[in-house]
Design a protein around this nucleic acid. Structure first.
Lengths: 199, 199
DNA sequence: GTCTATACCCCGATAGAC
DNA sequence: GTCTATCGGGGTATAGAC
């Protein structure tokens, strides 16, 4: 009989150390491939080649090729929300939006591979990922206005979308031009936010 | 002997009416396919099926599959720059940035297929398309400041990137939620621009 | 537990019949 | 001018050897 029916991780049994290591390695090379050559280039053959194993071996550790890139996407998202979340939690409510913008741009500028992976997955993957993107920031904006004793201003959804889009554009520019100062752009964006949104 | 060596349009001879019509039809169905199912779904077979002809017939009118999607991309871009360009030219210099934002969002909201085609092509196509995106807007911003008798303010490149990213985000939200009022969001963005950039 | 071999599909493109 | 037939290559995934 051939390989097992279910890949490691889909059962209730915990993963062995070597399985964990292989999975991490495959996730890592997949992020690199997607970042450098785009989503379409992350084929089973290329992933296997980059990890110096065979296609069959890849499909032993993951149920399908799609499962590999999904796991890679989840990995970069987890790292992002953990980093940004910690920075936001450490800031006072009225400074939380600024902390969000700063750490979001900082994190993605420090991890360009993750940034590219996220934009590739955003365009290709599930479309209804929009709310998950702007709702947390919209909540931060509402709380900050309240902490400053201001009434409701511009529609928080629109404001959060504008800020999120601006962050994406700054990161995109930084990816193309490593000399572009993304942190300075972040401060400009925060200044705009202060004068226009907390008026 | 088989079909001709060069597709119509690659020679110096003008296109016949029927050739022009076929090309337009192929461009149209390609835009629809890319808009609805993504860049990867725009295969020769699907394009041919949607146009109710055969793969061979498609490759008679265009040199390659890539030439079809390139032509489709150029078509939507031409329509966009013509529309926005006319609106900008009709506005006084100090109002040109606002006209740009309004018509850009208006055009893409009115043509969602074009909008989706552009984002797909932007992510997949040539990376160094960045300057072409923000430089024209940066020039409008500089001129507007000058027309209002203001000195140079925030880095025009960063400001243009922020506005461009915000436009993208508003359009993206509008594509997912047809009930989202993109024009109202455009006015909010313009108001932010007035208070923060022309201070 | 890992690899080889293979099956099967869709891709883009060409050659040549009609 | 349009179609059929076909080729070569890459894709994912499975079966089974070791």
């Amino acid at each position: 009989m051939g390989g097992r029916r279910t890949a490691p991780g889909t059962e209730d049994r915990p993963l062995s150390f070597i399985e964990r290591k292989r999975r991490d390695q495959l996730i890592e090379v997949t992020i690199g491939l997607v970042a450098e050559h785009g989503y379409a280039a992350a084929s089973l053959a290329r992933i296997a080649q980059a990890a110096e194993i065979t296609k069959g071996a890849v499909l032993y550790h993951f149920a399908s090729k799609d499962a590999v890139v999904t796991a890679a996407h989840a990995h970069v998202l987890d790292a992002l929300v953990a980093d940004v979340g910690a920075a936001v939690d450490a800031a006072p409510p009225d400074q939380a939006p600024a902390a969000y913008v700063r750490r979001m741009i900082g994190h993605l500028a420090e991890h360009p591979d993750h940034a590219r992976m996220i934009v590739e997955a955003t365009v290709h993957g599930d479309r209804p990922a929009s709310e998950a993107r702007w709702k947390p920031l919209a909540a931060l904006l509402r709380n900050a206005r309240e902490a400053r004793g201001l009434g409701p201003g511009t529609d928080p959804r629109t404001l959060a979308l504008i800020i999120g889009g601006a962050i994406d554009a700054i990161i995109g520019e930084r990816l193309q031009d490593p000399d572009y100062d993304a942190q300075a752009a972040a401060e400009s964006l925060i200044a705009m936010l202060e004068t226009a949104a907390f008026a």
